[in-house]
Nucleic acid binder design. Structure first.
Length: 876
RNA sequence: GGGCGCAUAGCUCAGCUGGUUAGAGCGCAGCCUUCACACGGCUGAGGUCGGGGGUUCGAGUCCCUCUGCGCCCACCA
C-alpha cells in the first residue's frame, strides 16, 4: 500500500476495513476524553525525528502568553493551524508541531509580585535559605533575581498545565513531547547564544542614547511596543525675547513644562518669515537660557507659528533635531517621570538670570510632568510671557501599549540590534515569504519601510533573559561599558547577577578593579524572535534542528506582524542568512458576538471552556474552521451548533452506511458499475481535488465548505436513493456496486472531515478500522474506480445523480404541499424532460422508485415538468 | 496625511481566472414522528449584489469615483 502521492511523499498506509462494530446509539458524549487519552497513549502525533528531512513539515507554533486565561481567539487561530497540521500528516508529512508558552516578561512579573508579595532587587545575592512565602506579606519582600525567576517559574507551571488541558480537549494534534517556555533553560540558552553571536558579529551594540521610557514600568520600550492614543492637549503660545533687542519670537508648544529643557528654536529653511532670524539667539522665558534659532526641513511652516522649540526631549522629532543639528543635552525629566533637580549656573545650565531661573524651576522641580505643566503655565501667565489663551486640541501621544502614562524620552544605556542597515534585505525576505492571505505582506513592508531606529532589545526589568555580559570596574569604580566581558557559550545560560565572569571572584563584584553584571534583561521579543531556534533545539540538539529548520509554517495573527514576525525574520537573517519559514499564515481576530473587538476593558471576552462543553470540541472547531484565513470572525454559537449537528450527522450516517455494507466482504472500487454510484463518486472525486487544492493554499475554510456541502447532499439524496438496493443480494452487481460505493464514499468523507472534526471522525473510523484516522492517508484519486480516475464520468450538470435528485426533490415537495408523510406512496409519477435527461433518469429508475415510494413511473419528452399523484397509504 | 482590507438575503458569510433564472448556513414559516438520525428530516418565503460612472455581446466578479466601516503606519511643536 506504499503508494506515492502527488506531492512526492509516500502515502501513509490505508488499513483495510474490518467488520463493522457499531454501537447501538452513537453519541458525542465523552469522545474528547476518550480519544485525547488514546492519542496520548499511542503517540499518534509524536514527531518521528528519524524521518527524512524532505518529509518534515515544521510549524513555528505561537506560544500563548500564560498570564491569565486562554480566550476564544486562541481556540480560533490554533484550530486553523491544527487543521493544516492534520492535513499535512495525512498527506505523508512527518509533522513537527511543538507547543510553547510565553511566560517571559512583564505580565508574569506583575502577577508574581502580587501573588507572592515579593519584589525583585537585582542587587541582592541569591539567598540559599529563601523559602516561598505562603501568603503575601503586607509589605513586599525584596528577593534576588534568581529567586524571583524561580517564583515566576512556579506560578507559570500551573498556568501551563491548564493550557495543555484545554489544548488537549480542543484536540490540537500537538506533539506534547516538544514543549518549551520562553523563560526555560533552553530558551535562555538560545537567547543568550543568539545575543552573543549578534555581539561578536557586530550586529548588536550598546550605547547611551535618548530612549522611549515608560515612567511607571521604569523601563525602555521599543518602537514596536508603542502605540498612539488621542489625548487632549493645548497649544501655548510663548514669547522668546531676541538678545539683539529686536522684539521677540513666538512659538507654540503643547509641552510648556519642557521649557527649561529647550536647546534651540527651529523653522523651515524656506520659511521667509524666519529666514532673517536664522543664526540669531533668543532667550527662553522664565529661565533666561540663550538658545539659537536654526533651520531644518522637518519644521512645518503650517504648524503653530511655524517655529518650534526643541527640547531634550519632548518627542522623536526633538531627538532627530538634536542629533542632526548637534545640539547640547539638557534633560529635566527623570526616569520616574518627575522633574529632576537642576542647579542653574552649572555648566550646561547657564542662565542670564540665575536667581529667576532657580525661583521658577523651584516651582516645578520634583513634580510630575502633568503637575509641572499646569504650574509652569501659571508662572508664564503671571509673568505675561504667554500670548493669548491656551488653545485646546486633541493630538496623538505615544504610549507603551501596556502603559497608563505617556512615554517620556530619557537618556539611558541600552542594547540595540542594527536593523536600519538591513531594511533592503528584510524587504527582499518579505517578498520571498509566502503570505496567506497574500495582502498581509503590505503590513510587513510598511513596517520595515517605516523603521526609524535600531531595535532596542534591553529592558530594565527582572523576569526575563539576562544579558550574558559583565563589565569591568576601573580603579575609580567606574563601569567600562565599551569592553563587555562575555560568558563562554558552554556556560549558558548565565545570570550575571549571581554568576561570575571567568577570571574573577564573587568577592570582586561591585568593587573598584572588579566587575558588575549587566543589570538588564532582554526584551520579550528578543527571545520570542527565536522560537524556531528554541523549539528546534538549536543550541543543544543540532541534529534535530537541521531536520526542522527552516520551518514550513508560521501561523500568527496580523497585529504582531511588526513585532513577532518581523523580529523572527531579522534574527534568522542575521544568524542563518535565510528565512525562518517558507510560509506565514495570518489569522484574523475573534470579535465579540456584537462584532466589536474583544478586550478585557470592554468586558466582552469569551472564555472557551463553557463553549467546548456545550457544543463539543468538534462543534467549536467547526465554527473556528469556518473563519476565512486572515478574516476577523465574530463569535457565533449558532455556527457551533451547526458544527455539533454535523458531528452527530457523521455518527448517524456512518452507522447507517455501515449497516448497509456489513455482512460479507466489501467489494473493491471496480465493483462500482451503476451509473448513479459512479456519478456520486465522480462528484466526490472533484471534492477531493478541491479540498486538496484549498489545503495546499492554507484555505482550510474552503476545504471544509466543499466537503460539508457534499456530505449533506450525500446523506439527503444518495443515501436515500441507494439504501434499498444496498440491502439486496450482495452477489448481484447492483447491490455490490452500491455497497462498494458506500464504503468508499464513507471512508473518503471521514478522512476529508478528519482535520476539522477529529473526535467524531476518529470514533466513526474506529468502528471499522484499526489504527487512527489521523494517520490514515489523505484521500486520493487513485482510490476511486478506474472510470473516474480516467475522468470519464460527466460533470455534475447532467449526472444521473443530479437528475434523479431533482425529481426526488419534486416528489418531496408534492408530499410536503399535500401535508403528507415522506413515506406516502406515489401512485403515478410523470416526468417530462428532454430525452437525454430522461435517459439518465432511466439509469436509476429503480433507486428512484425505492426512495420515492413510486408505483407507476411515466416518462415523456417535452418541456421539463414533474407530475406527482399521491396514493393512499397502506393500512399495514 | 499614507497604506491595506471590507461593504452580497433579517444575521454570519461563499461566490476562485467576468457567462444560463445570485448560493449556503442561521433565523423565520409550514409540513413530517417510532424501519440511521427529534442532539432529527423535508419544503418554502426572503437579496439585483453600498451610491454613481465606465469597459464588454455580457459584471456581484474588471477599471474609475464617491460614501460608510475596520485595521496598520506616520515627526506628539
Amino acid at each position: 500500500m506504499d503508494e506515492t502521492a502527488t506531492n512526492g511523499l509516500p502515502r501513509p498506509p490505508l488499513e483495510p476495513a474490518t467488520a463493522p462494530v457499531v454501537p447501538e446509539r452513537p453519541t458525542l458524549d465523552g469522545l474528547e476524553g476518550k480519544w485525547s487519552a488514546l492519542w496520548a497513549e499511542s503517540g499518534t502525533y509524536a514527531f518521528d525525528r528519524s524521518a527524512d528531512r524532505s518529509r518534515v513539515f515544521a510549524i513555528d507554533t505561537p506560544p500563548p502568553t500564560v498570564s491569565g486565561e486562554l480566550h476564544l481567539g486562541h481556540v480560533f487561530s490554533y484550530t486553523h493551524t491544527d487543521t493544516v497540521a492534520r492535513y499535512r500528516r495525512m498527506r505523508g508529512h512527518e509533522v513537527f508541531y511543538p507547543m510553547g508558552f510565553d511566560d517571559n516578561g512583564l505580565p508574569t512579573e506583575r502577577r508574581v509580585q502580587n501573588y507572592y508579595g515579593v519584589l525583585c532587587d537585582p542587587g541582592l545575592r541569591q539567598d540559599p535559605s529563601f523559602v516561598v512565602p505562603e501568603k503575601p506579606e503586607k509589605h513586599p519582600v525584596a528577593i534576588s533575581r534568581p529567586d524571583f525567576i524561580d517564583l515566576c517559574g512556579r506560578l507559570v507551571a500551573e498556568d501551563e498545565k491548564a493550557f495543555e488541558d484545554l489544548w488537549r480537549t480542543l484536540g490540537l494534534s500537538v506533539d506534547w513531547n516538544h514543549t518549551y517556555a520562553t523563560i526555560d533553560t533552553g530558551a535562555r540558552r538560545a537567547s543568550q547564544r543568539g545575543f552573543l553571536h549578534l555581539l561578536s558579529n557586530g550586529h548588536a551594540y550598546s550605547t547611551e542614547a535618548p530612549t522611549q521610557w515608560d515612567v511607571d514600568f521604569q523601563s525602555a520600550v521599543s518602537q514596536a511596543e508603542m502605540e498612539d492614543r488621542e489625548l487632549p492637549g493645548a497649544y501655548h503660545r510663548l514669547r522668546f525675547a531676541r538678545v539683539d533687542g529686536n522684539g521677540a519670537v513666538e512659538i507654540e508648544t503643547t509641552r510648556p513644562e519642557l521649557l527649561a529643557a529647550c536647546v534651540a528654536l527651529v523653522a523651515h529653511p524656506d520659511d521667509a518669515r524666519y529666514q532673517p532670524l536664522f543664526g540669531t539667539t533668543v532667550v527662553t522665558p522664565l529661565f533666561g537660557v540663550a538658545v539659537p534659532v536654526l533651520a531644518h526641513e522637518l519644521a512645518d511652516p503650517e504648524k503653530g507659528s511655524g517655529v518650534a522649540m526643541i527640547c531634550t526631549f519632548g518627542d522623536t522629532t526633538d531627538v532627530t533635531w538634536w542629533r542632526e543639528l548637534s545640539l547640547p543635552t539638557r534633560t529635566i525629566v527623570g526616569r520616574n517621570g518627575r522633574l529632576k533637580p537642576v542647579v542653574w549656573g552649572d555648566p550646561g545650565w547657564e542662565s542670564t538670570d540665575r536667581t529667576a531661573a532657580d525661583q521658577a524651576y523651584g516651582e516645578i522641580a520634583g513634580k510630575t510632568v502633568a503637575q509641572a505643566r499646569s504650574r509652569i503655565v501659571e508662572l508664564l501667565a503671571a509673568a505675561g510671557l504667554m500670548v493669548g489663551e491656551a488653545k485646546p486640541i486633541t493630538h496623538p501621544v505615544k504610549f507603551y501599549e501596556k502603559g497608563d502614562r505617556p512615554l517620556e524620552i530619557v537618556s539611558s544605556r541600552q542594547w540595540y540590534v542594527r536593523t536600519l542597515p538591513l531594511r533592503e534585505r528584510l524587504l527582499e525576505r518579505g517578498r520571498q515569504l509566502q503570505w496567506h492571505p497574500p495582502y498581509m505582506v503590505h503590513r510587513y513592508e510598511a513596517w520595515v519601510e517605516g523603521l526609524n531606529s535600531d531595535w532596542n532589545i534591553s529592558r530594565q526589568r527582572y523576569f526575563g533573559v539576562p544579558f550574558p555580559v559583565w563589565y569591568r570596574l576601573n580603579d575609580e569604580g567606574e563601569i567600562d561599558h565599551d569592553h563587555p566581558l562575555v560568558a563562554d557559550e558552554s556556560r549558558l545560560p548565565v545570570d550575571p547577577s549571581s554568576d561570575v565572569p571567568d577570571g574573577f571572584l564573587e568577592e570582586q563584584r561591585g568593587l573598584p578593579g572588579g566587575f558588575v553584571g549587566d543589570p538588564d534583561v532582554m526584551d520579550t521579543w528578543a527571545t520570542s524572535s527565536l522560537t524556531p531556534q528554541i523549539a528546534g533545539h538549536w543550541a543543544d540538539d543540532p541534529e534535530l534542528f537541521a531536520k526542522v529548520f527552516p520551518m514550513d509554517l508560521r501561523p500568527q495573527s496580523h497585529e504582531i506582524i511588526r513585532t513577532w514576525l518581523f523580529s523572527t525574520v531579522v534574527r534568522s537573517e542575521l544568524e542563518h542568512g535565510s528565512l525562518p519559514w517558507a510560509a506565514a499564515a495570518i489569522s484574523g481576530w475573534v470579535l465579540a458576538p456584537s462584532g466589536k473587538k474583544m478586550s478585557k476593558s470592554r468586558g466582552n471576552v469569551v472564555t472557551p471552556l463553557p463553549l467546548l462543553q456545550t457544543h463539543g470540541s468538534d462543534g467549536v472547531r467547526y465554527w473556528a474552521a469556518s473563519g476565512r484565513p486572515g478574516t476577523d470572525t465574530a463569535v457565533d454559537e449558532g455556527q457551533m451548533k451547526v458544527g455539533r449537528r454535523l458531528a452527530i450527522k457523521i455518527l448517524n450516517a456512518s452507522r447507517f452506511t455501515l449497516s448497509r455494507i456489513a455482512g460479507g466482504e466489501l467489494p473493491g472500487p471496480d465493483a462500482v458499475v451503476a451509473p448513479i454510484d459512479l456519478a456520486m463518486l465522480g462528484d466526490l472525486a472533484r471534492v477531493v481535488d478541491e479540498a486538496t487544492a484549498a489545503f495546499e493554499g492554507y484555505d482550510y475554510a474552503r476545504a471544509l465548505e466543499r466537503t460539508e456541502a457534499f456530505f449533506w447532499s450525500f446523506c439527503d439524496d444518495y443515501l436515500e436513493l441507494v439504501k434499498g438496493r444496498a440491502y439486496e443480494d450482495p452477489s448481484q452487481a447492483g447491490p455490490a456496486s452500491a455497497r462498494a460505493a458506500l464504503g468508499l464514499a464513507l471512508s473518503v468523507l471521514l478522512r476529508l472531515l478528519a482535520p476539522f472534526v477529529p473526535f467524531v471522525t476518529e470514533e466513526a473510523w474506529s468502528w471499522w478500522h484499526q489504527g487512527s484516522i489521523h494517520r490514515a492517508p489523505w484521500p486520493d484519486v487513485t482510490e476511486f474506480p478506474a472510470a473516474i480516475v480516467r475522468g470519464t464520468v460527466s460533470g455534475p450538470e447532467d449526472s444521473v445523480l443530479s437528475v434523479v435528485a431533482g425529481v426526488l426533490g419534486a416528489v418531496r415537495r408534492a408530499k410536503t404541499t399535500a401535508k403528507r408523510s415522506m413515506r406516502a406512496p406515489v401512485a403515478r409519477l410523470t416526468v417530462v424532460d428532454d430525452p437525454a435527461r430522461l435517459a439518465l433518469l432511466a439509469q436509476a429508475e429503480s433507486d428512484l422508485r425505492d426512495a420515492g415510494g413510486v408505483i407507476d413511473l411515466i416518462m415523456n419528452s417535452g418541456p421539463p415538468d414533474v407530475g406527482v399523484e399521491l396514493g393512499e397509504e397502506d393500512a399495514g
